[in-house]
């Protein structure tokens, strides 16, 4: 199963590298948010991390939803979803492959956005790179786990992309909140028990959402 999972990821990445249909718009959106925040936010340095964490994760969410929507939506072109369902792999494997593709897209976005926010908004997001990496990883998986499951649901719906944001956002509010708080604490250098509580919360959400997604994906995508 691991090999087939990898071939789905490979196929999606090759397609994206040839077309650049989603990633440029996603990265541009994130950068614009970082730029506007950097230019407009006239806050004292000690208050900036409080705003930057929330804005960073909202930017990651809204920009990332474009990639998440495309991951399953693209399979509906030419009926490819049917082809995928006919291969001897479980729906959970397809879900995990799509989750991996989306996580890679969001990781690329985070690689650009976190330094951009740090530079443009003058927030020390990179002062504890290990802590920031852990928060980014867990937040990424939490958002992608819900997004991938629901993108399978709306893939066959007209204007499913805008619908996807509406139905995913309420479900990932805990993830965005926890990631924003953990980011703020990391930027302020407070990596104590409170930071760990938010990280544990992120880890719990990621585990729950990935398990639920892998279990429910078959029901979501079949007629």
């Amino acid at each position: 199963m691991a090999a087939q999972l990898w071939w789905i990821v490979h196929k999606d990445l090759v397609s994206e590298c040839r077309t650049w249909r989603v990633w440029p718009a996603m990265l541009l959106f994130g950068l614009v948010v970082a730029f506007v925040f950097g230019v407009q936010a006239d806050l004292p340095p000690d208050q900036r991390p409080q705003i930057a964490g929330g804005l960073l994760w909202l930017a990651i969410f809204f920009a990332g939803m474009q990639a998440v929507d495309h991951s399953c939506g693209a399979e509906r072109e030419e009926g490819c979803w049917d082809g995928l369902m006919l291969y001897p792999i479980g729906a959970a494997a397809i879900y995990l492959a799509k989750l991996a593709v989306n996580a890679i897209a969001l990781a690329a976005l985070e690689c650009l956005l976190i330094p951009a926010f740090a530079a443009l908004a003058d927030v020390p997001l990179m002062s504890h790179p290990g802590a920031m990496l852990l928060v980014a990883l867990l937040g990424n998986v939490g958002i992608c786990a819900v997004g991938t499951l629901l993108s399978g649901l709306v893939a066959g719906v007209r204007h499913g992309g805008s619908l996807l944001v509406l139905i995913v956002l309420p479900l990932v509010i805990p993830v965005v909140l926890a990631a924003a708080e953990a980011t703020r604490l990391a930027a302020e250098g407070q990596l104590g028990p409170e930071w760990w509580r938010w990280v544990h919360l992120l880890a719990a959400f990621a585990a729950i959402f990935v398990t639920a997604g892998a279990t429910l994906f078959d029901f979501v995508i079949r007629d």
Binding site: K11, V14, S15, R18, E77, E78, G79, C80, D82, G83
Partner: peptide
């Protein structure tokens, strides 16, 4: 072989 081709246009 479904009604649609099931092939990826950018491969």
């Amino acid at each position: 072989v479904p009604h649609q081709s099931c092939i990826y246009p950018h491969l």
